[in-house]
């Protein structure tokens, strides 16, 4: 470090002045950002009736609740205790199966509808602005209204039961997947499309042979991701009477059947984690070795 020649003092002063100004401006921007976020948080806290004192006072209740729902497993006869904890296992497993089937059917139906809509909503395949905008708005409405709200309305129209859950999930999934799918379609390589339309293929043929082969792995990956989300969503659709394990869980919480709460909760968590891990593996295989990250 012996070769460093110091800058002439006046240039050094000018440069360090510039540096101080620049870093000061950056710091002021950061502080202003923090101030805005803090003000918004305060506003939000007022709107959401946050009461920190109540929270601090009652945090004991949270730990007490957790302690209460912990299963009564003693060291004396742990196996019998576990059996008693899971007294309702066959029924719960059946309901869990119903939940998974709801999620599957909802994802499948919604995926098919989203698949159809995605090509209509893609800017590079559809010339007509009107058709495209109509398709995009429709998908947006499907996506923004939560599935539970659809379920609430459908329960009145179709009657209680898992069919309602399937329809609610399917509509919400149509919106969510339709948007993601159309974004995939908009990013494809256009040369196969041009090749096919130059060879005189119809719109449907172009989509089938030039677009679908390119987008299918991505579509499958998104659909699996959605399936994961839908399993989680299907578990609570029972809260409004749309089938699955939710109803049983709500009853356990409302009636203070503490051991049942933890038993069902553990079942749900295990199922969701297993599905997550399984779909993650499949998705990694789908994305293939060339762009495995």
């Amino acid at each position: 470090m012996r070769g460093l020649t110091p800058l002439p003092p006046e240039r050094e002063a000018a440069l360090s002045g510039l540096y101080a100004a620049a870093s000061g401006a950056a710091r002021r921007r950061t502080l202003a950002g923090f101030a805005i976020v803090a003000a918004l948080a305060l506003l939000a806290g007022l709107a959401a009736e946050v009461r920190p004192l109540v929270f601090v006072e009652n945090i004991g209740k949270f730990t007490a609740y957790i302690a209460q729902i912990l299963p009564p497993i003693g060291l004396a006869q742990p196996l019998a205790d576990v059996r008693a904890w899971y007294w309702g296992l066959p029924g719960w497993l059946a309901l869990l199966g119903e939940t998974l089937l709801m999620a599957y059917l909802g994802t499948l139906l919604g995926g098919i509808a989203g698949f159809a809509f995605s090509f209509v909503a893609a800017a590079n395949l559809v010339r007509s602005r009107g058709v495209r905008i109509l398709a995009k708005r429709f998908l947006e409405v499907c996506r923004t209204v939560p599935d539970v709200v659809f379920a609430l309305i459908f329960v009145i129209a179709f009657g209680l039961g898992p069919m309602v859950g399937v329809l609610a999930i399917a509509i919400h999934t149509t919106g969510a997947l339709g948007k993601l799918f159309s974004e995939v379609v908009e990013n494809i390589d256009m040369r196969p499309v041009e090749g096919l339309s130059a060879a005189g293929a119809s719109w449907i043929e172009t989509v089938r042979f030039a677009v679908v082969p390119q987008v299918l792995p991505n579509f499958a990956s998104y659909a699996l991701l959605r399936f994961e989300i839908n399993v989680r969503g299907a578990a609570v659709l029972g809260f409004v009477g749309a089938g699955g394990i939710g109803q049983e869980f709500l009853a356990a919480i409302r009636n203070f059947y503490y051991a049942d709460v933890s038993a069902i909760l553990v079942l749900i968590i295990l199922t969701v984690v297993c599905i997550d891990l399984a779909t993650e593996r499949v998705r990694h295989r789908l994305s293939g070795p060339e762009d495995a990250r």
Binding site: E49, Y65, L250
Partner: peptide
């Protein structure tokens, strides 16, 4: 549902 047991009904 769990937090309602702790801080009561409401947006909090």
């Amino acid at each position: 549902l769990i937090w309602i047991n702790v801080v009561g009904l409401g947006p909090f």
